[in-house]
Structure formats: C-alpha cells, structure tokens
C-alpha cells in the first residue's frame, strides 16, 4: 500500500524495546527526590543517537520517522533534552567532517547539552558534564564547544532541573549555523518530545481522575473533569497526527516538509503546556505540591518550548492552497 499510516512492525518493536529501557532507567519517580542531570548512557546503549543514521555511518538505518516516535517516548519519561542535543550534535559533527567528535558523541564519551540564546547570553539545560552544546539562535542551530565558556549554574524555574548561564563564545557568531535540514530535524525531535510530555500529562491525569473520589464517586465521572481529560486527549491526537505528517514529509524530502514542521512547532509547545496545566488542575491540591509528579510536566514543557522554534508558518506555501482560478 502506498498510502498507509499504520505503525509498522519495525516501529512497534523499537517502541516496545524503548518502553522497557525507559521504564527501567528513566521512571518519572526519579525526579521526585533528585534534580541530578539524566545520564545518557542507557540511551547510548540503546543506540538512540544513531538510530536514523545510515549503515555506512555505523547507524541503524532507520529514518526520522522512527526517531520521532522514539523521542515522543523520551518525552513521556521526561528525559533530558540532552537526548535531542546528542542526536543533533552528532549529525552536525558528521556534516562538518569532525568524525572523531561524532564518534565520541555516539559512544557517550562526549556529552552534549541543549541550549538557547536569550538577551543575556546562553541558557543551558542540564549542562553537568557537557563539553558541547546545541545552541538555538534566531538564525538557526549550532554545535558550540563549551571549553571556553564560563558556565554559571542558576536556580531553575520552580527549583526544577539544572539550568546554567554561559557567555556565548565569540567563535559562535563567526560560524554559519547548521544546514536547514538539521534545523528541521532538531525541531521535529523537540516537538516529538513535547508530544510525549502532552501524552504523559494526559495519562497521569486520567489515571488520577479514575481513582480520586469526592462526593462518593471518582472525580472522573463528573463532566467538568471529563471534558478537561477529553481536551487533553484531543490535543495528543492532533499533535501526534501532525508529528507523523511532518516526519514523513521530512524523511521523503517532500516539498511541504518545511510547512509541516512549521505547523508542528506552532502546535506542540501550546498543547504540551495546556495538557500539563490541565493535569495540575485535575490533581487539585496535590497537583500544586512538589510531591506529586504533575508539576514536572509543566517545567519540562517550558524547557522544551524554549528549544522549539520554527520558521514563520505564514511565510511558507500551503500544500492545500486553492488552485489559480481561470
């Protein structure tokens, strides 16, 4: 079949294996007591960063479609955005002929963290032990060597996971950003992780609504709660459909790839945040506490949202524009 959006057996196998690996190494409960940066070692061993590289580059030969599905699973487990940074950093190193660096990223010897530029310099997420950073700036993404950077840890929003400021090394502005294709892949994977956050927030809230009782019955039997949950489910369905569309367009180098990615990035941060916020509300008092997991999704959605940037959607040609009238 030429038109088929079924998840293939290969894709299912990757997701099943990932589920086991993530459950073992990145249970959401790990974040209750510790704000330590996530280790990337289990992901290296899983082959996550070389999943979509061709065999000729020691990759597993899959595509960005499989990689996007995998990163959605990462997002569900609130895995550090360093996972996206490694996958992209490795590609930038290869594209610029730095095979040793690519190899070191692939084996986990060199850690890459994710960062974005603000008016005050670089903001790095979970930077501990990172020698390189994927930096998002208005003009694109770059792989930045942190050797020269002065990294100053900061207290994160809501005392969340580690964040640091760093001065942007002078060399950054002299180098051209990575190619547009890598920019699109970085956006795709970040949005996939946002889908995972939206999905995780939905599931946590739906589970809680089914067990928490008030007025003698589960709160999930009340319409007000049901409708919040339905809205979360709709957001997940929209976003995952658009993620598939964008990933396929990018894999197949279709001419609407940039449009589909720009549409995706318009939706992903909003839906992830909306689901995370509804999740807090459904949990009530415990949702506002740092002792329950609901709040973790808000903070993670904000971090990923800061890393998700796309082209102006209105500047791109639409695939379903009306045909010229004769």
């Amino acid at each position: 079949m030429t038109f088929d959006l079924t998840i293939s057996d290969d894709q299912r196998q990757i997701l099943d294996a990932a589920k086991i690996m993530l459950g073992r190494n990145y249970p959401q409960s790990r974040l209750r007591d510790s704000n330590a940066c996530d280790s990337m070692t289990p992901l290296v061993e899983f082959g996550a960063f070389v999943l979509a590289l061709p065999d000729t580059q020691d990759g597993a030969g899959f595509s960005v479609v499989e990689e996007a599905l995998l990163h959605a699973a990462f997002g569900r487990h609130l895995v550090s955005p360093s996972s996206m940074a490694a996958a992209i950093g490795l590609r930038i190193a290869l594209a610029t002929g730095r095979d040793d660096l690519a190899n070191a990223i692939g084996t986990g010897e060199i850690k890459v963290c994710a960062g974005t530029e603000t008016g005050a310099g670089m903001l790095l997420f979970e930077p501990d032990g990172a020698a390189q950073a994927i930096l998002r700036r208005a003009d694109g993404i770059r792989l930045v060597d942190l050797a020269e950077a002065d990294i100053i840890p900061q207290t994160a929003m809501g005392h969340g996971r580690p964040v640091a400021r760093a001065t942007t090394p002078a060399a950054v502005s002299n180098n051209a950003p990575a190619g547009e294709d890598l920019n699109l892949i970085a956006t795709l994977l970040t949005c996939a992780q946002l889908l995972g956050v939206a999905t995780g927030a939905r599931d946590l809230a739906v589970d809680y609504a089914g067990i928490r009782e008030q007025f003698g019955r589960p709160i999930g039997s009340f319409q007000a709660i049901k409708h919040h949950c339905a809205n979360m489910a709709i957001g997940v369905d929209m976003l995952s459909a658009q993620l598939d569309m964008a990933a396929i367009a990018l894999r197949d180098r279709r001419e609407d790839a940039a449009f589909q990615i720009a549409a995706l990035v318009r939706l992903a941060p909003k839906i992830a945040l909306s689901n995370a916020r509804l999740g807090i509300q459904i949990h009530g008092g415990i949702g506002f506490s740092a002792e329950a997991d609901a709040q973790l999704y808000i903070k993670h959605a904000h971090v990923l949202g800061a890393l998700a940037q796309g082209k102006d959607l209105l500047s791109l040609p639409a695939p379903l524009a009306p045909l010229e009238e004769n």
């Binding site: 929209m238 658009q242 569309m245 449009f259 589909q260 549409a263 318009r266 939706l267 639409a318 379903l320």
Partner: peptide, 8 residues
C-alpha cells in the same frame, strides 16, 4: 493554518 494542517 497549523490547526487546519493538523486536522488534515
């Protein structure tokens, strides 16, 4: 535009 794309 993004929502129409997602609906598609």
């Amino acid at each position: 535009r993004a929502e129409a794309a997602a609906l598609r």
